[in-house]
């Protein structure tokens, strides 16, 4: 089942008096449960495409649909709800809330919904996720007391806590050493298998690209390769 579809998507940025064409007519579909890597060198348009899929940026031309909804047609409130209900985010710089501890950071998206789950249910689910990402003992620690790898694990748990259909990870390993980076990708892969969540991650590191079962290779805002590594 197609969950995300991009049709002839362009993105132009003004840069001084000129315009930068970051994405030049990109089209592809993403199936539910996929583990996708959007790969390419710096400046190839990976982050821009992820931002448009994540509804935090809009295409200059073309259509981005999520579950058959054209995201350009939505108002801010609807887009915010869509981001909360359908999407999860993992950032390159982890982007945890510094004043909240590990448990509270993971819980944070759950409390933003219209009908948050009861406290007991929330606690049980968050504890389970913390065990899954290997942070069971770090519940009350603040982000600044954690290593980069641990912070990214918190971010993964936070992205999954609302049980989203899709998780977007923008260069999740860029700020980690290669070993930790590989373990983070492994963890994401495990979550993808366990919960059936669609994972889309961008990377410029060729060594982790092939872990994905669907690779979209970009160069200068164009797709140069769109292949499935597994059936």
């Amino acid at each position: 089942m197609t969950v995300i579809s991009l049709k002839d998507v362009h993105k132009n940025y003004p840069l001084g008096k000129t315009e930068v064409h970051a994405v030049k007519g990109v089209s592809f579909d993403i199936e539910s449960g996929d583990f996708i890597s959007i790969a390419g060198p710096s400046g190839s348009g990976k982050s821009t495409i992820l931002n448009m899929i994540g509804c935090i940026d809009t295409p200059s031309e073309g259509i981005v649909t999520i579950n058959d909804t054209n995201t350009s047609d939505l108002k801010d409130k609807e887009i915010t709800n869509l981001r909360h209900d359908v999407l999860g985010f993992i950032f390159q710089n982890f982007n945890l809330i510094p004043v909240l501890n590990v448990f509270e950071n993971i819980e944070f998206p759950m409390l933003l919904g219209k009908n948050p789950a009861p406290k007991d249910e929330r606690e049980e689910w968050i504890s389970h996720l913390m065990e899954e990402v290997g942070l069971g003992e770090w519940k009350t620690h603040k982000p600044n007391e954690l290593s980069g790898g641990q912070r990214q694990r918190v971010a993964i748990a936070r992205a999954l806590v609302t049980k989203p259909q899709i998780v977007l990870a923008d260069e999740p390993t860029a700020n980690l050493d290669s070993e930790t980076g590989a373990s983070i990708i492994e963890l994401m892969k495990k979550m993808n298998k366990e919960y059936g969540t669609t994972f889309i991650f961008s990377t410029h590191d060729q060594t982790i690209v092939d872990i994905a079962d669907h690779v979209i290779q970009l160069k200068d805002g164009n797709i140069i390769e769109n292949r499935r590594t597994q059936a």
């Binding site: 935090i56 915010t80 981001r83 209900d85 944070f108 933003l112």
Partner: peptide, 14 residues
């Protein structure tokens, strides 16, 4: 600013 962006991205309303 970045923190505000994060909160908005994960579903916090204006």
């Amino acid at each position: 600013t970045k923190e505000i962006g994060t909160m908005r991205a994960i579903g916090m309303h204006r």
